[in-house]
Design a protein around this nucleic acid. Structure first.
Ligand SMILES: [Zn+2]
Ligand SMILES: [Zn+2]
Ligand SMILES: [Zn+2]
Ligand SMILES: [Zn+2]
Lengths: 125, 125
DNA sequence: GGGAAAATGAAAACGATTGTCAAAACGCGT
DNA sequence: ACGCGTTTTGACAATCGTTTTCATTTTCCC
């Protein structure tokens, strides 16, 4: 529980959307922190390994992170414009994924599901 | 319809799994082709733009491609070990995704869904 | 065949991420 | 407050996938 990791966690918690390591670094530096980029990467890696933050990849291959309200399994509805995200659930999807996996003889079935769109506030601009 | 693009398309079609640009480049060179890495990237980009091949990102951020049997909207069940993939459908998921999107006021709703697991042949080893 | 336009590939540039390593901060027994 | 071994930090270099640049080669059409 280093103070730096806590700093990064809070920077993430302060945002409702997914943020990249470089975004967070820029934010922290802007508000006066002397944190290094390497440390931001390390903190995000640690936080995602413990499941405290969620990670996903943009179409460009960049990793973006989010400190969600729950650590339970869930998915996201993400705004393509501002990257704001809403946590969503889909019991039917969970069941379908494991069912289709086992149907084809796959074991250890997991899945990734993300829903994208333009949020109401971004649409009205 | 350059001959190089066709070469790349066939290299992809010859595989049942998702392959990276570098994989395909290595394969093609191994079988004697004098193709350049840049051209492989360009071909894959063109093929994915027209929807002829599907793309997804590995957890490490690498783009991997697959020439699927259909160009219709579908998803994949991918082996984590050998990357072999099966094309799957889930009408319920399609409906759920658009429903949850509009429920939160999002427009232009799309989604990404991938199912992962260990295929039977990889499990028996 | 000749020349404009498209395709090609080697090498350089790029951007995100990771590795290196010495300096700084910390924990703890004294 | 003081050493001192351990952990954390951050500047910088290195890596890796991908894109850009640009000169050369191929294709296409007359
Ligand atoms: Zn938005
Ligand atoms: Zn799920
Ligand atoms: Zn397999
Ligand atoms: Zn779908």
């Amino acid at each position: 529980m280093s103070t730096r990791r806590e700093t990064v966690r809070q920077a993430l918690t302060g945002s409702t959307g997914f943020r990249s390591a470089q975004d967070l670094y820029a934010d922290l530096r802007a508000e006066g922190s002397k944190i290094g980029l390497t440390t931001v990467y390390r903190a995000l890696q640690a936080l995602s390994e413990t499941g405290e933050v969620d990670v996903l990849r943009t179409n460009e291959g960049e990793a973006v992170y989010r400190a969600c309200d729950t650590e339970q399994h869930h998915h996201h509805l993400v705004c393509r414009v501002c990257s704001t995200a809403v946590e969503i659930e889909g019991p039917a999807v969970e069941a379908w994924a494991t069912e289709v996996g086992t149907r084809y003889g796959f074991t250890g079935v997991t899945h990734t599901v993300e829903v994208f769109g333009t949020c109401a506030s971004c649409a009205s601009r």
